[in-house]
Write a protein that binds this DNA or RNA. Structure first.
Lengths: 95, 95
DNA sequence: ACCTTAGGCAAGTGAATGCTTGCCTGTCAA
DNA sequence: TTGACAGGCAAGCATTCACTTGCCTAAGGT
C-alpha cells in the first residue's frame, strides 16, 4: 500500500492518471504528447517511462503489449483503500 | 492539493494519522509514545514535530494551543478530493 | 535487406527530504 | 524564584528520487 502513496506523491504521475482517465490504452508517446498539451509538462520519454513503471508497481496502471506498442490502462481501485483507512471524520464543522 | 499527497507519502505521517484517528487532541509526546507502542516507530521528538508540521500544512491536522500543551486533531476531509479526482473506474472487473 | 519507430536498460547527477544535534522559549508547580 | 516539562528553531548529514545521457532490442513498413 505504501507504493500507492509513493506513486501519488509526484505531480507528473498524477497528471498521467488524469490523462489516462480521459482515454485508456495509450502508448508511451501518446502520453508524452498529452502531458505536454494538456498539462504543460515536458519530461523526456525516459522520465515518463520510469513514472509509468512506478504507477504500474502501485497497481494504478496496467499494461498490455500489442505488437510494438505497449498500451497503458488506469486502475483507480487502489485509491479506495485511502478513504477506507481514514474515513470521513464526523466532525462538528468543516464548512 | 499537492501538499496532501506529499504528506501521505511518508509512512510515519500515515501512522500519525492512524494514531490520531483513534483519539483526537493528543500532544506531541503522546503521539510519540503511541507511534512506538502501536506502530513500532521510534523517531525522535523533533522528527515527529516536523512530520506534524507537514500534516498541518496539508490541512490533514489542525492544532490548538492550550497552556503549554499543543493538541493535535485529525481532519480527513482533504482526502475526499482524491477519489473525486480519480473516481472509481467502471471497468469490466475489479471484483 | 534496410531504416524508422516504439520501447528498454543502466549508470550518473542534482535536488528534495527525513532525521539528527544543539540550543532556545515559554508554561506550570513547588 | 527556581527547576522541570512541552515545545520550537536552525544548521548539518545522509538517503531518496526524478531526470538525464548513451546505448541497445525488437517490431513494422518500404
Amino acid at each position: 500500500m505504501a507504493d500507492v502513496f509513493r506513486a501519488l506523491a509526484d505531480e507528473t504521475r498524477r497528471a498521467l492518471l488524469d490523462v489516462l482517465l480521459r482515454r485508456d490504452e495509450q502508448t508511451l508517446f501518446e502520453l508524452c504528447t498529452r502531458l505536454a498539451m494538456d498539462h504543460g509538462l515536458t519530461p523526456s520519454r525516459q522520465a515518463v517511462s520510469q513514472h509509468l513503471d512506478v504507477l504500474e508497481s502501485a497497481g494504478l496502471v496496467h499494461t498490455e503489449r500489442r505488437g510494438r506498442y505497449k498500451l497503458h490502462t488506469i486502475d483507480t481501485s487502489p485509491l479506495a483503500q485511502i478513504t477506507e483507512r481514514w474515513p470521513p471524520t464526523s466532525r462538528k464543522a468543516t464548512p
